[in-house]
């Protein structure tokens, strides 16, 4: 099979200007992936599925990855002239910037007909809050149906063109997306006998009566 760079060139030859980036994987597994843009993803997926010689007829695994916003501190050295006329000083200036996060969907494609793979496709949303729509690949590979629903449910990525986009593991009417990194679990608590300090502290909030203090194990 082609390397991932060859595959990118082949795709770019067919779809000029599609904006395909190779995402390198530094681990020993060396499974590099292709980052696609949302606009062309479905055309590229159809091409990957139908082109003789590629024939990625099975989309084995679909999953989401959450990359939260990162605060990055840049340190730049600035040379300031000394007002007193002395030699110029080198001052470090720190500036904070927020690198916007994104939600990423990863597709692992294999070819059953030609027995090769995986080709890993990645799609990224613009941000994590209001612009979370990506094209659904369920019309291309049926196996994406439940897995994209799962990504929608647990990560909150909205798949445009999905035939039946509902929650799948959490119940209807549930608000949050539990697989996001900043998910805060609901403040529900069932009393249990534990010596763990933080659990006990939580227990006291929920059961202010003396019954809340479970017996600490005797030393």
């Amino acid at each position: 099979m082609d390397t991932v760079e060859q595959l990118r060139d082949r795709l770019l030859a067919r779809f000029p200007g599609a904006g395909i980036t190779v995402v390198a994987n530094p681990s020993p597994a060396a499974q590099h992936s292709l980052l696609l843009t949302a606009a062309t993803a479905r055309d590229l997926a159809l091409f990957l599925r139908d082109e003789p010689g590629l024939q990625f007829d099975q989309c084995s695994n679909v999953t989401g990855v959450d990359w939260p916003d990162k605060e990055i501190v840049d340190t730049t050295k600035v040379t300031l002239p000394d007002p007193a006329g002395g030699p110029p000083k080198v001052v470090e200036q720190k500036s904070k910037r927020v690198e916007p996060g994104c939600l990423e969907v990863v597709y692992h494609l294999y070819s059953i007909a030609l027995r090769h793979g995986p080709v890993i496709l990645r799609l990224r949303t613009a941000n994590r809050t209001d612009s979370v729509t990506l094209p659904s690949l369920t019309p291309v590979w049926r196996s994406c149906e439940f897995q994209e629903r799962e990504v929608f449910d647990l990560f909150g990525v909205v798949f445009a063109g999905h035939p039946d986009l509902r929650r799948i593991l959490m119940w209807d009417g549930y608000q949050d997306h539990p697989m996001r990194r900043d998910y805060v679990e609901p403040d529900s608590y069932e009393w249990e006998p534990t010596p763990h300090g933080e659990v006990l502290a939580k227990a006291r909030q929920h059961y202010p009566a003396p019954a809340a203090a479970p017996e600490a194990p005797k030393p």
Partner: peptide
Amino acid sequence: RPKAGEAYGR
């Protein structure tokens, strides 16, 4: 602690 990267094993 494996080094940064990713892998899919099946």
